[in-house]
Amino acid sequence: MSRSWSRGPRRRYAPRPPRSLWRRLLDYGLTVVLLALFILVAARLDRLETRKEQGTAIVNDGDSITLGIERIRMRGIDAPEYTQTCRKEGADYPCGKLARQSLVRLIAGRPVSCSGWQRDRYGRLLGDCKAGDTDLNRAQVQSGWAVAFGDFETDEATARAAKVGIWAGSFEEPQDWRDSHHDQPVEKKHGTLASLGDALRELVRLW
């Protein structure tokens, strides 16, 4: 078996003309500006102080606890409000109370630690919380007693497919329930992307 091929005409490469003095000065200037911005951002990041709280948790509802005097709203999730009802098998049931009970079971009397730097409109710390090795935020979504609210969409999809927790019946989204039962501003989602946006806005404010 033979192969035949022909050599095409060689392409000639002409050397690039040297950059003009003004172009080089512009490149150097942009480099200096970017470096200065990087230094300023690095200097301001320490102003975004992360708070860490730990201790015995008082469970308020399915997505909020109190540690000492610090009220904490669990970041990236949204559980039914304590007085909210959902529907299953043709009857209403107290899904808000069951969401709180789920969080109590997950904590299981263990010390809880939470960390975060953002606060919601009520002044509560938006926290990522753990009890031992249990990621409480994620576990509430996985158990079906909270919906994703900026994070944990994959965990929500798994819980929905398994029809656990509130997914076993029908329910009103906690945000919609709050809007219809309380005359309050809409709570924005507080997942990873929202956190990045808040960080940028905070850095601009600090400058």
Rank of each mutant, 00 (worst) to 15 (best):
K130R: 15
Q140P: 03
W145V: 08
L125A: 09
K130Q: 13
K130D: 02
Y122I: 12
D155T: 11
Q140E: 12
D151I: 01
C129W: 04
A146H: 01
A131E: 09
T134V: 15
A131W: 05
V147A: 07
W145P: 06
N137K: 01
A146E: 00
V141H: 00
D128P: 00
G132H: 02
A159S: 11
G123T: 09
W145Y: 15
L126R: 01
K130N: 13
G144A: 10
L125N: 05
L136K: 02
V141F: 08
V147G: 04
G144V: 05
W145K: 02
Q140G: 05
G123Y: 11
E156A: 08
C129K: 00
R138D: 07
F149Q: 02
L126I: 11
G123L: 13
Y122E: 10
T134R: 07
T158K: 13
E156F: 06
F152Y: 15
C129G: 04
A146D: 00
W145C: 03
W145M: 11
G150V: 06
G127I: 04
F149K: 02
A148P: 01
Q142F: 02
A146L: 05
Y122G: 12
Q142I: 03
A146C: 11
G132Y: 06
D128R: 13
Y122W: 15
S143F: 02
A159T: 07
F152W: 09
G127H: 07
A139I: 02
Q140Y: 10
R121P: 06
F149I: 12
A159D: 01
R121W: 14
Q140H: 12
R121I: 14
G150A: 11
R124N: 10
D120W: 02
